[in-house]
Structure formats: C-alpha cells, structure tokens
Design a protein around this nucleic acid. Structure first.
Lengths: 152, 152
DNA sequence: GCTTTATCCATAGTATGCTATGTATTTTCC
DNA sequence: GGAAAATACATAGCATACTATGGATAAAGC
C-alpha cells in the first residue's frame, strides 16, 4: 500500500490548516489578535462568563493549552478571570471592553480569510467541504467524553 | 454577516487537523516518530539526498521550522546531513538505516490513522474530500513562489 | 577581480499545541 | 463528619509552527 504525501488525508488537512492559519493571522494581527485566541474569542463573543472547562469542551483543545492561552489573553487585556462565587475551583472568563470591541473587525477578517482560502472552490464545493469536515469531526468528537456547558 | 465556530471553514479544518495529528501520533510514537517529522520522512522515503530547501518546497513549512525539525531528526538518528560537494552553502539530507527501516511500519500507521479519522465518511465522500483539499491547497500554493527540487 | 545581490542554513524569540503532574476544592459515600 | 474520589485549574517540559535576523557561500554585474 503506497502512501504519497498528496494521497494522505491527514497530510492535506494539516497543510490546508496551516494555509488557513497564515491567512487568518495576516488579517487579525493588525487587530491585536492571534490564531490561538481566535476560536476562544468566537465563543466568548457569543456568550461570556463561561468557565475554563466550558471553553475546553467548546473549543476542543486540551485543558493545559486553554489555561496557557487564557493567561496570554489576560496578560494582553482581552479577558478577565474572576473567581466563581459558587465553586472555589472555578474561574469565570469575561471579555474586557477591549476584547469585546474587536468582534466586528475580527469577524470580517475571518470571513475574508475563509473566502481567500476557499477562493479556488465553487460555492457548491465550499458547502460540500464544510459538510464533510463537520461529519468527520463529529465522527471522532462523538467518541470522546462530552460535558455540559455551564448555564449562567 | 455572522460567524459561528461551526460555520467557519478555517475553524473546522484546524479542528480536524488536530484530530488527525492526535490519531497519527498515537500510532507512530511507538515507532519512534512524531507528527512533525512524518511529512519529511514521507518525502525522504521516496527519495533522499535532497537539500533542506528542497524539503522546504516539498513540505510547505518555513525554512526555520525545517532547520529545527531536521536538527531533532539528526539528534534522534533518523537522518544525516552531509555537506554538498558542489555548493558550500547546502547540505544534503540522507536517511540513516534506522530511519529507512521505519518506512513500512510508519506507512501502515498513517494509513490506519487516515482510515480512523475518515471512518465517518463513505468511500465516495473520502475521495471527494481529498479532491477538495487538494484543490484548495493548490489554489493557494500556486500563488507563492515555487522552485525546483534538486536532481541528483 | 570585486562589489552587490541572492541563496542556504542557523539561531533567537514567541505562540500554540501536547502529556504528565501537582494543588486546591468539591462531591460522594460510608 | 471524614476519607476517598472527582473536578478545576496551574505548571513544567517538550514539539512544532511562525517571524526576524545573521553568517557563510555563490552568482551576477560592473
């Protein structure tokens, strides 16, 4: 069974992910955001006051990675971490005004990056690709442990 | 224009790439390989004696990343770097016997990882996904500078 | 030939991901 | 109520990616 780089789905997905990251970074760096914080901000713009473990579940990165990234985000003034009054182990993550203000520009930047990378595909192909990606991800994510996101 | 995490192609590709990397790592770590060296090994198994800059072109990572990864690979006994007799700036990268011996097991592991991640898709969907990935990558890669790979 | 430019590689510094582990707090169960 | 287990977060150490920069060598242009 041969395995050339171009015939490996993993290789291709990895390659495209790096092209995506570069396209996104080019556009959000001027806004003071980076690729690692972006998915976290996306969730916080929808709803903040979540715990770290909520975000771990939503974003799909490891807890230690989340803790590190949140520390950088706090250092950079994007978020605040306040102790949860009901659970001494938890902290609730809130956007600062600075963090909240970046939403509009950042979303436009992300849409532009997505469009840029998908430019070679037709509209139908783009929709197809997204569906296949979601299907593959859910096929794997469903195997892991899932947990509830805190209500406020 | 709204942008939820699940509707962003970049977000999805990044997520799937991490699932792929985890699936591959699980299987090649016992063989003494890692995800970063894997794409490089794939090319070297096809043909070694390439220069660092050849590999940069083929793999699509930055030159500095390649230099670092090759240093780890040399440290770990996978490759040797010999000076190019015709060009004092270049070094030629050769597999060690140890590196060469890992090919069969590693390829089987990669095929298993690919199959695992794509398990949720039908055969037709898999082929479709690969085609779309290649199309998107080539659409971007074509914009960059390209160079020739050294003949021997 | 000699200067200028280009190319090849290495290093420094940082971000983003991982595993492994530790600490503090809460929950469970007797 | 108190020990054991589970949960939430942090830290250490490493791999893998990036940008920015520097040094050595080669190629081009005069």
């Amino acid at each position: 069974m041969s395995l050339t780089p171009g015939s490996s789905a993993g290789y291709l997905v990895n390659h495209l992910a790096r092209l995506f990251a570069a396209a996104l970074q080019d556009r959000i760096k001027p806004l003071g955001l980076s690729t690692g914080v972006f998915p976290i901000m996306l969730h916080l713009w929808q709803k903040d006051g979540l715990t770290q473990s909520d975000l771990v579940t939503l974003v799909g990165i490891e807890q230690a990675t989340m803790a590190n990234t949140l520390a950088r985000m706090e250092r950079d003034g994007l978020i605040l971490r306040r102790p949860d009054p009901d659970d001494g182990r938890s902290k609730r993550i809130f956007l600062t005004e600075v963090g909240r203000a970046k939403q509009t520009g950042a979303m436009a930047a992300a849409n532009a990056a997505n469009a840029d990378i998908m430019a070679a595909l037709t509209t139908g192909e783009r929709e197809q690709m997204m569906q296949l990606l979601r299907k593959a991800i859910e096929g794997k994510a469903g195997q892991g442990r899932q947990s509830q996101v805190h209500a406020e």
